[in-house]
């Protein structure tokens, strides 16, 4: 690894400054991205609270106020964990933009981590207030106990790490496949359903829930939401931490192996 821990903080600091300048320069695009991020969970929120009211107040243990809380927290978690490298890696590799990154004495992943964190910081200034507004407007039922809030922080951080590592590793497929769009689409659908974005996982049939718990998707999004909403027992939260850590280790190992193989295949086209 081209990684020297001593200098990394300085690199990140400089990267943050450059990224903020860059993303502010793209403020139009930033707003559109943000709208997309906000609208999707709001649609689910409206649909499910309506369904709950129509069903006499409850669907599978979720009242309208529970749905409002679930989807608003989900919006926050999804905003903080989502990445876009799976989408852009192919473009980067095909057009040779990856080459200059490879020639710097810092692993390219640091560029992407910094980019990701900067985007999250900038957009959170909007997502945070919007979430508060939604919680109030839709009459969300949210009464977390202190330990729910305390546990929420590490589950969220681990979810961010896991989702980033996994999606970055999958993005490396671009070294082998020139069109990763199909793969990306399949992955997106899996995330949509199995990470609890369309509906809380507890509303799915038990078989689907079992699959979702074995795969990494739940641990990337739904788990922190379920934790802060108090839907999990302490034992379940601990098991969830285990699942998150396990998948992070798997992702790291995969990343190292795939990175090494991919970089040998890299043909630096267009560069």
């Amino acid at each position: 690894m081209t990684l020297r821990l001593g200098r990394l903080p300085a690199v990140y600091a400089a990267k943050f400054r450059a990224e903020i300048a860059l993303q502010v320069a793209y403020r139009g695009a930033l707003v559109i991205w943000l709208l997309g991020l906000l609208i999707e969970p709001i649609v689910y929120l409206v649909v499910w609270t309506t369904v709950a009211r129509g069903q006499g107040g409850q669907v599978g243990g979720f009242a309208a106020g529970d749905f409002a809380a679930y989807f608003t927290i989900l919006m926050i978690v999804n905003q903080l964990t989502f990445t876009w490298h799976f989408h852009f890696f192919e473009w980067r590799v095909r057009n040779g933009f990856f080459s200059p990154m490879l020639l710097r004495p810092v692993h390219p992943i640091h560029n992407d981590v910094a980019e990701n964190l900067t985007f999250k910081m900038l957009t959170f200034t909007v997502v945070g207030p919007v979430a508060l507004f939604l919680l109030a407007t839709f009459g969300a039922t949210l009464h977390p106990e202190p330990w729910h809030l305390i546990a929420f922080v590490p589950t969220l951080v681990l979810a961010m790490v896991l989702r980033f590592l996994l999606e970055w590793t999958l993005a490396l497929a671009a070294f082998w496949i020139t069109r990763t769009v199909a793969l990306n689409q399949a992955y997106y659908v899996a995330v949509l359903f199995l990470s609890g974005q369309v509906a809380p996982l507890s509303l799915f049939p038990p078989a689907v829930q079992a699959v979702a718990s074995v795969l990494p998707f739940r641990w990337m999004v739904a788990f922190p939401v379920e934790t802060v909403l108090g839907r999990l027992a302490p034992g379940e939260v601990l098991a969830g931490f285990g699942a998150q850590l396990g998948w992070i280790i798997v992702s790291l190992v995969l990343m190292r192996v795939i990175w090494r193989a991919g970089i040998r295949r890299y043909s630096a086209v267009g560069a």
Partner: peptide
Amino acid sequence: AWDIPVVDSFELNRAIY
């Protein structure tokens, strides 16, 4: 980087190297 002043990119290189 396309959209930021050249010195900002230079400053990043300074940190990287």
